[in-house]
Design a protein around this nucleic acid. Structure first.
Lengths: 206, 206
DNA sequence: TAGATTGTTAATCGATTAACAATC
DNA sequence: TAGATTGTTAATCGATTAACAATC
């Protein structure tokens, strides 16, 4: 698992491969070729082989890839084989929607703490998790060894929340607020902007 | 507004430019250079100029871009200057979160109808909008001239919902279900997969 | 005018795809 | 063995960046 320099495009395709492989596995299909995967996913087979080959020789010439084995390997690469604890800040509808995604827990990437600054929400439970006040952030991140923070607060508060997450010690942030936030270089940041998705779609209408 | 072949990457940056320009406008800043924009947004100034130049000569040499004028132009390009009606199928938390985004309405991209298949939800109101049964889809899409459908149902139902939206006459679909769906070529499709975002982020931890 | 900044062409960079030897 | 399919190198394609004449 040497890494010669993996582009973001490659990393973004891995979860797509993984999901398809899990579907195959549930269908009791044990082997798959890059040809078949490419067909289904709309991705060039050579690209799939190249993406996978960055991380190791997972296939067998003349045969293809063994589904359960490849699932294991991709999980390792994406670190989905070990527990990664996630905190979510902003228990609005989007926050609740995300904390309900059970796929996260299935993949050992699980939201284990919820925070909100609204005093009326403190103590309410979403599923099994109580909503905590922001004053608990540092203590909870340390206690549960939380590595990732998800931001689902309104845009004007996003930077402040990001700063607090960084100070509390998270290693990565997934930001859903429609604003560009700044974090130190050593913190991984991804921004998922739902409004720009819809605006970009409008371009293609007509 | 001739289109020599605009890449998706360009279209995805336009909403980002727009948001920053709107921020400048609210701050009463009337002029901006590609230099300044690039600095703030972390994008190469030459790229910004090139992106904009695909659609027209919006700037003035030696001066830069006039903020209100450029806002108008980008809105025109993204078709945010005309009303585009949107229907949302799946009134769960994610659906409610999206229908509450007031930015959409501000941009004349507004969610004007909600659908769900759960009989218990029918008639409940989210903001001003009642949740309608799927049996109303065709009639409502026609009556309100709805052009875009947003899918926020669970993955196993997504393809079926997409088929119904297409049959009802929408032109574009924004899919939030974590599954690849198929639509006819003439329908624009974007998939926003929140689970793969988080999985990709995990790769960069450590 | 002098300084600044665009629009655009050319150069660079990186990602995708094709091709094929290796080999199951 | 013959057919299939990988891993990888080379070729292609497209996107980003640099450079600069035009001009405000």
């Amino acid at each position: 698992m040497k890494t010669p320099k993996i582009s973001e495009a490659v990393v973004r395709r891995l979860p797509v491969y993984l999901r398809y492989l899990q579907y195959l596995n549930e269908s009791s299909i044990r082997t798959v070729s890059s040809q078949e995967m490419g067909q289904t996913l709309g991705i060039n087979p050579a690209q799939i082989r190249k993406d996978l080959a960055y991380f190791g020789d997972f296939g067998r010439k003349g045969i293809g890839y063994e589904v359960p084995y490849l699932i294991e390997k991709i999980k390792q690469i994406l670190k989905l084989d070990r527990t990664i604890q996630v905190a979510l800040v902003g228990a609005g509808h989007l926050g609740i929607a995300l904390s309900n995604y059970n796929r996260f827990t299935r993949e050992k990437l699980s939201i284990v703490a919820l925070f909100d600054q609204d005093p009326n929400k403190i103590g309410c439970k979403i599923g099994l998790l109580p909503i905590q006040p922001m004053s608990e952030l540092n203590a909870t991140v340390s206690r549960l060894d939380i590595q990732i923070g998800i931001i689902t607060v309104p845009a004007p508060e996003a930077q402040r929340v990001a700063d607090r997450l960084v100070a509390a010690g998270v290693r990565g942030i997934l930001n859903f607020a429609p604003v560009k936030i700044k974090v130190p270089d050593e913190i991984s940041l991804r921004t998922a902007d739902l409004t720009t998705e819809l605006q970009a779609l409008a371009y293609y209408i007509d």
